[in-house]
Design a protein around this nucleic acid. Sequence first.
RNA 1: GCGGCCGUGGUGUAGUGGUAACACAGGAGCUUGUGGAGCUCUUAUCACGGGUUCAAUCCCCGUCGGUCGCC
Length: 396
Amino acid sequence: MFTITARDEKTQARTGILETPHGTVETPAFVAVGTHARVRTLATPDLVAAKTQLIIANTYHLWRTLGDEGLKTYQGLHAAMQWPYSLMTDSGGFQVFSLGIAREQGVGKVAGGAHTELSRMPEKNLVRITEDGVHFFEDDHECYLDAETSIRIQQQLGADIILAFDEPTSPLHDIAYTRCAMERTHRWEARSLAARSSTQLLYGIVQGGPFEELRRESAHAIAGMPFDGFAVGGAFGNSFGSARIHMKKELSWVSPFLPENKPRHLLGIGLVEDLFDGVAAGMDTFDCVVPTREARHGSIWTRAGRLDIKRGRYVNDTSIVDPECGCPVCTLQRTTKAELYALFHEKNEEAGRRASLHNLFFFNNLMEEIRRAVREKKLDELKARYLSRSAASSFS
RNA sequence: GCGGCCGUGGUGUAGUGGUAACACAGGAGCUUGUGGAGCUCUUAUCACGGGUUCAAUCCCCGUCGGUCGCC
């Protein structure tokens, strides 16, 4: 059940309430990533303190860990995670990309700088895609995943929202391959829908890469299927050349086809500017590994930009990590930059915990501010305020 | 005073007759449906002087410094 509560008149931004069997989610909302049924370093009270409303776990990784035997007796994600609120699961579709063509081309979700300059060395493609499904060949693990299997597993996992099985394509793919993958994905999605026997909300996923014709075709096709919500996949952020422009364009091509009254999720996005763009395009929820992954590597998100807290310049800096922040790490614990520096350098797990809690709060709080701004018709002001800060380059 | 051992980047250690490896620290960059609590770069006239050699950080002598033992 999804209810729109306010709209921005200059953009397609909207606020809404998404109700699931485990509570309500105020949208637009940021979704924390807990791939292995756990948001790394954070316990439930931390997640709540970080204003988390929704967490996404991953079908491929959990299946790999639990196996079919483990799933038979699985208590369900909510119990396993001790998370009584809303949850979603990714279908494993992204791993078709991340373990496959992404490795082969040395392309991350984002490649470095220009298209010619890849972010890492090409590695072995670990997947083989067929019409029916996908074979995965990791060193110590081989498996076959298809639409029916993904849905079966997602039903066993028991998240509130589940996703259709898809194949995201690389921005380096040509239009011919992208079309082929897209059409196959449409068939997999129809099968996902047919395989679903639970009352979980099932979202369809729009693909089509950077090609207008394909994005429109995909949105039209997926929107015509009786999904409970819709997701946009295969979107790439700013770092991939001019790809953020692509993301905005892609969303503009797709969104006219998506039913107004159903929730929309933007997969894998994003950074601050990407989130503003997504909201403006009418997207309601966003998942991204950035706050939690970067936290563990010492990158602290603040309104003034991103800090690398492991830098020597912070060794004696006794100011609060982010004086403008309202999170428990900055207010209750009054953590200083020097303290956090020390925790990281002594490899104390508390470092990752505090940084993750702070970063997740930063993004959840940003979404809360966005919601308020949409209600007050001040979204453009808020965006300008965030992006005009001196170090705002790290936001996009 | 005599004898032994040692003297390599900011720190701690490798190492080899053909100008140097690793860890940590420092600096720069990266991270977008988590393979990776991670990755890529970068920072040294190998104590000083002389000798042997085509070539010395590595061999020899000396100086200085440190360290242990003996008197």
